[in-house]
Amino acid sequence: MTEVIARRGFHGPSNEEAIESIHNELDALWDDAAFVPDMDRMTFATAVIEAAANIVQHALPVAEKPVEIDVDISVRPARLVARVSAYNAREPFASDMQASMPDSEAESGRGLALIEALVTTVTFERQDGTNTWILTRDT
């Protein structure tokens, strides 16, 4: 088992308020783990917010229950880990999973490419109507 030094989370409806709440949890995580260097905070927080924003913007409900977003962020020795999940969500469309940087005129479509540039590993899991992004950054 890897030791968890600090941990924060959020669970709620997938909407704009969730993004602000998740950002506040990230800020609180750095308060709990003040030793994490600025560069790692900046890159990891950006990747987590991009993944959460992707869910808020693109995740569609699988049935009548609305999509809920769940975020679990933790600081471990030499590693930051985030699990960003969409509950009650359909499987993402392939077009939502586009990970190459679009041309400079495009006003959207950079989120996933940005996530890949920011973290060490990106893993996607789907299980029982839940889509989960697992992001890790070695520190």
């Binding site: 950002h23 927080a45 950006t46 917010i49 991009e50 924003a53 913007q57 400079s104 005129e105 495009a106 006003e107 959207s108 479509g109 950079r110 989120g111 940005l114």
Partner: peptide, 12 residues
Amino acid sequence: FMDSSGLGALIG
């Protein structure tokens, strides 16, 4: 802080 949505708005 700025994410890709903020960047998209600046480009627009």
